[in-house]
Nucleic acid binder design. Sequence first.
DNA 1: TGAGCTTGATAAAACGGTTTGTCAACGACG
DNA 2: CGTCGTTGACAAACCGTTTTATCAAGCTCA
Lengths: 341, 341
Amino acid sequence: MKKPKVKIRTVAEAAGVSVTTVSLVLNNVASARVGADTRQRIHEAAERLGYVPNEVARQLRAQRTNTLGLLGDEVTTTPFAGRMVLGAQEAASKHGWLLMLLNTGLDPELERKEISALLQSRVDGVLYTTMYHRVVRVPDQLRTVPTVVLDAEDDSANLPSVVPDEEGGAYLATKELLDHGHRRIGFVNSNLDIPATSGRLAGYQKALRQADVPFDPRLVVSTHPVSREGYAAASELLSRRERPSALFCFNDRVAMGAYQAASALGLRIPADLSVVGFDDQEEISEGLLPGLTTVALPHYAMGAWAVDALIARILDPNAPVERAVLPCPLVRRESVAPPVS
Amino acid sequence: MKKPKVKIRTVAEAAGVSVTTVSLVLNNVASARVGADTRQRIHEAAERLGYVPNEVARQLRAQRTNTLGLLGDEVTTTPFAGRMVLGAQEAASKHGWLLMLLNTGLDPELERKEISALLQSRVDGVLYTTMYHRVVRVPDQLRTVPTVVLDAEDDSANLPSVVPDEEGGAYLATKELLDHGHRRIGFVNSNLDIPATSGRLAGYQKALRQADVPFDPRLVVSTHPVSREGYAAASELLSRRERPSALFCFNDRVAMGAYQAASALGLRIPADLSVVGFDDQEEISEGLLPGLTTVALPHYAMGAWAVDALIARILDPNAPVERAVLPCPLVRRESVAPPVS
DNA sequence: TGAGCTTGATAAAACGGTTTGTCAACGACG
DNA sequence: CGTCGTTGACAAACCGTTTTATCAAGCTCA
């Protein structure tokens, strides 16, 4: 229970040298000239005493904390974003930086003060993130600290940001179905006003166009993108006289509803109906039978990219403002097969 | 782009007083005697200059960071644990503390040094957590810093910890089925050697005993608790001559498999079969049709409890070592109904 | 022999706050 | 009129590092 706090001075005295010398040696300062024997003694003393430098003192002196703040609208902990946080965390760790969690609550007035106070000199930069891809207004208080927008785009467009390539992902999904021979491909889109809605529609259309399949607006239905609504939308689509042979679903939850709709209609997947989802929420995509072919959101990669970009900006404030759009890879499972001819 | 760094000295000069006085006034030190007019001037100056104290300097002086480390085996960001992190984060925030994220990677040797270095004086305490409830050996390096074990129990049993009441949750789940009149209740348990397996079995048995329903071991099957295996296990159970009228599933993923098994066998839920899950993973429990009645793991509450306990211990190292077992509430949806008589 | 390098090491000044101890001025009181 | 307590304010020490500037000693070379 004793805590004789070994500080740098302790080591210095043990090695019979000055504090300066210890610091120089332990930090491997290139310009320092210290005899080999002295170095030896210092290292030994430090080792023996179990010396670890006080990081806070260091931070004060260096005017840098090597810490990033992950600031989000309750996001940070949404199950969805887990991998994004992980990507950020591991990237930070790779650079030797730490990640601090900050949730913006609901009271913006209160939050404003709190955040700027907490941020003050505790973090060198901020990852501003949202629960899902959208356009945000970054709080003014962040103007003073290097910031990167994660899984979102700021309206002013002068901050680095990283978002998923919604269009590219939808293109891949649709193309996967086309490549298997499908021509009547239903699309259960969302009815939310977010980039994913328009982006995925664009990707769907692009793939069709490229395959010379005429776009039929009647095959596209919009709905609130949850399982229950997906069930309803898919049921409607699949009950038509000329039913689609495949369904591209806005997300995995919708796809889950589609599975249930197909089951209710006696349609087997993928024999009678092919389905592709979006998001790759593993509880769903892996849990469904058969496994759901879907498009993965690059959460991990986005988190990592954002951290890299942020640290780059901290180190060099004049670094260019990049706005990344990361690819959404197709994850093949068992829900796609050629249509019955 | 100017940054004339307003520090406490700036305020002092602006108000025409000493640094000491500014500190005293701004921190509302009770024992300080400062004239009302002077206070006024200081507050005005601080406000006008937008002064915010440098937190790092403060930490150095106070020898305290008011920061907690959330340390886990990749946990911290598992979708599952999102609400746990949120609970911890919000509790910390309530106390005015911050949360730092640390993932223990895979290389324990490397990790050891890294962690102890990072921990050194950057955090005042550590939340040691795991992906799911189990017994862990807490790394030695944590012996030096106040630690609370979250969603796990340490083998030495001398650290505060908080875990879900597996038995109580299973009891509630089973009782819910019994209360609806079910007597033949199948239990698809996990085959993993974790507290949840034995605890949930105990709860299941306790509920049966209390309802005077004899325990029939043939109604219990063990399997790897994922959807696919759940499907197989449930199929087997439901294909028996005397099939159970209800299924208690180890977790929601298993329940998801059970839904699919029921569907394949032409059994409607809840008319022909009642199902209760465990975990309340909302993507599943809310996504299934009908909604899955399940037992929620108290992730949020556990996170909050752990933070409260940790801060209490930091403030008073002699605080008693509590080991909490938090209740798992039943979440009713639509998957339970009386059996067909 | 002394001027000038080089080597090895250090004292002291930051970094930006908090806290302790001291002190001058002033009114009250004996 | 001295003494004492109170009030209001501040100087200086401290927290644990890093870094700059300085210095003594030894060596080289003219």
